[in-house]
């Protein structure tokens, strides 16, 4: 299976396209895409950053950075009500946005032979927060929306050791990795509905 030899740019393009598609569906307006550039992201540069980790044939991290105002505007669309802060539900919605963007990108990559999955999504608030132990530069592009700007950063860490195995072996490895405990933190308990 040599079809998984995607380069960093192809991976970044898939994620930026996916972010455009998801935000367009959500906000009913197509974002305007800025130029792709190489930039470091060991520390956050935006007021709020959604972080999603991917594993599988390709491993890496995806960052969606934005101002708090932009995040609140996106949340108003997602929750269909007024939103003024970042509580547990709001953070869960933003993390789900990260998962949706990533899963949409992974569907595009799957069509090109790479089997990957998102393992974890979370939200980091504040600038200069360390978001990754890796110091690899990322490929980034800003998306301009009516409600502000979303900076899409894609960090490519490498290929999995099983990336060139048979599809069956890769699926089995993917399943084992996905089931490894502790990769995705469970949320707090939610009481049963009456």
């Amino acid at each position: 299976m040599d079809s998984v030899r995607l380069d960093k740019r192809e991976l970044a393009e898939a994620v930026i396209d996916a972010a455009s598609m998801v935000l367009r569906d959500l906000l009913k307006l197509p974002p305007r895409r800025g130029q792709m550039q190489i930039t470091p992201i060991q520390f956050t540069r935006d007021e709020l950053t959604i972080v999603t980790r991917i594993s599988g044939d390709i491993s890496g991290e995806i960052f969606l950075g934005m101002s708090k105002e932009t995040a609140l505007a996106i949340l108003r669309q997602m929750l269909r009500r007024e939103v003024t802060g970042f509580g547990r539900l709001e953070k869960s919605a933003l993390a789900e946005l990260g998962t949706l963007v990533t899963d949409t990108a992974l569907a595009l990559l799957e069509e090109r032979g790479a089997l990957c999955y998102s393992t974890w999504s979370g939200v980091v608030t504040g600038r200069e927060e360390r978001v990754t132990p890796f110091s690899e530069p990322t490929l980034a592009a800003p998306l301009s929306l009516a409600v502000g700007e979303v900076n899409v950063n894609v960090m490519f860490e490498g290929y999995a050791p099983f990336a060139w195995a048979s599809p069956e072996a890769r699926l089995a490895a993917r399943r084992r990795l996905r089931l490894s405990p502790g990769e995705r933190p469970a949320e707090e308990a939610v009481p049963l509905a009456a």
Binding site: M78, L89, S92, A93, A95, E96, T99, E187, V190, A193
Partner: peptide
């Protein structure tokens, strides 16, 4: 669903 947001949406 493991995401609170998705559970709320469905509910």
């Amino acid at each position: 669903d493991d995401a609170l947001y998705c559970r709320m949406e469905l509910k």
